[in-house]
Amino acid sequence: MTRTLLAPVRALGRGTRVFTLAVGSWGSLVVDAVRALRWVQIWAPLTLRQMTRIGVDSVPIALFIAAFTGIVLALQASYTFTGAIPLYFVGVLVGKTMMLELGPVLTGLALSGRVGANISAEIGTMRVTEQIDALETLAYPPVAYLVVPRVIAGTIMFPLVTALAIAMGIVAGWITAIQLLELSTPEFVNGLKLFFLPFDVTYALIKATSFGFVVTSIGCHFGFNTKGGAEGVGRSTTGAVVASSMVILVLDAFWAVLLL
């Protein structure tokens, strides 16, 4: 009876302990990565390759998501803006929403599934096949070899991919507005410029940079802590995607509170 009553309390305590350990372990990995920056000769040649895998290869999926997001935004805006609100506000809504929210967040979520899962699975497999242990045996710093290039590549490439995605979303919204809605290009551009602030772009890039850092670092963390065989790799991959997505949303709110 007592065990049953205490079960939720125990679950809360266990969850807190696991969360704290995970955050601590992730923080420890980040600190190790910062320390590993001194091995430039190890991570620098690998960074470009990771930039290709994380950034360049992610551009098509990011543009695809952004394009359809822009189309939907334009259509939903025209559906909503009836009566008193002029239709050129479609440009306002598409531009502001893509820059401030949907561009960075949707790109981050999409790349957390693609990049985070990829990193976690790759490093997790190396962990369960003891390749990382082999690197350590050879006195080759695994963090400098596996983590630093990926985190640097993700931190650099996420904002660039996000910028392209934002531009694609706005272009898609513009094409939708002039093709499917009774809106001209000058009207859409007027709305786009109406409430634009340069800080909007800065805000989007700050968010995307933070998303790139957490997605890659969390993917590396889950991969480094993979245990067991193929099942463990799968579990780590799933955990990395879920954790990255949750952190992206938490960071989204955090930046909004802090910067807006």
């Binding site: 470009l48 910028a163 392209l164």
Partner: peptide
């Protein structure tokens, strides 16, 4: 080729921004 691709993406993104 990989270097060129990365360079193109970076330049394109910077120009867009």
């Amino acid at each position: 080729k990989r270097d060129a691709l990365v360079g193109v993406v970076i330049i394109a993104a910077l120009v867009v921004i």
